[in-house]
Each structure stands twice: as C-alpha cells, then as structure tokens.
Simulated scan of single mutants.
Amino acid sequence: MWKDKLKAFFTRQPVEKHDTAAWANIKETKAESNVPIPDIIDVENAKEYVEENKK
C-alpha cells in the first residue's frame, strides 16, 4: 500500500511538447489509415534540420 503512494508521489507528467513537431500543422489526413500529412513547409524544415545535424 505504501509503495503505491510512493510511486504516485514520484511519478511526473511527461515533458513532451508536440507543438513544434513536423505533424503539428496537418494539411490533411489519409481516408482509410487516418495518417496525417504535414504541410510542404514543415517537410522542408524537417529535411533541412536532418541535413544540418548529420555527423
């Protein structure tokens, strides 16, 4: 019983923020699979980010 209270005390909310993700600005979604398709600007920004951060 005290372990449950201890675990609840030390668990935190995740820090993830999806506001700046590539899929945040959804252009449309596919009909059957419901997969989001981002705007072309977000795709280009993601591509530039990946190319700049290659090792």
Rank of each mutant, 00 (worst) to 15 (best):
E44N: 10
K27E: 12
P36N: 00
T29L: 05
P14H: 04
T29C: 12
A24L: 03
A46P: 04
V50K: 05
A31F: 05
Q13I: 11
V50E: 04
V43T: 01
K54E: 06
N34A: 09
R12P: 01
E51V: 13
V15Y: 11
A31V: 10
T20L: 12
V35T: 02
F10Y: 06
N25I: 05
R12V: 11
A22T: 08
V50I: 08
I40Y: 14
D39T: 02
I41A: 10
P38Q: 03
A8G: 09
K47Y: 09
E52N: 09
T20Y: 14
Y49N: 01
L6N: 03
E44Q: 06
A22G: 07
T29P: 02
W2H: 14
T29M: 10
V43F: 02
N53D: 00
K55Q: 13
N34Y: 11
F10V: 11
E51S: 13
P38I: 03
N25A: 04
K47S: 12
V35Q: 03
Q13M: 13
V50G: 02
H18L: 06
D19V: 12
M1I: 15
A24R: 05
V43I: 08
D42S: 04
K5Y: 15
I41P: 04
W2M: 14
D19N: 03
D39E: 06
K27N: 11
K47G: 03
D19M: 11
D39H: 03
E51P: 05
N34E: 09
A31Y: 01
V15L: 06
D42W: 04
N45L: 13
K54A: 08
V50R: 01
N34R: 12
K17N: 13
I26G: 06
W23M: 14
E48L: 14
E32G: 09
E32F: 08
K30L: 12
A21R: 06
W2D: 14
N53K: 00
H18C: 07
D39S: 02
K7Y: 06
I40S: 14
D4P: 04
K54T: 08
E44A: 10
N53E: 02
E32K: 07
K47D: 11
T20G: 08
E48S: 13
N34V: 15
W2E: 04
P38F: 00
K17F: 15
E52T: 05
P36M: 00
T29F: 02
L6K: 03
S33P: 04
K55I: 11
F9S: 06
H18T: 05
A31G: 09
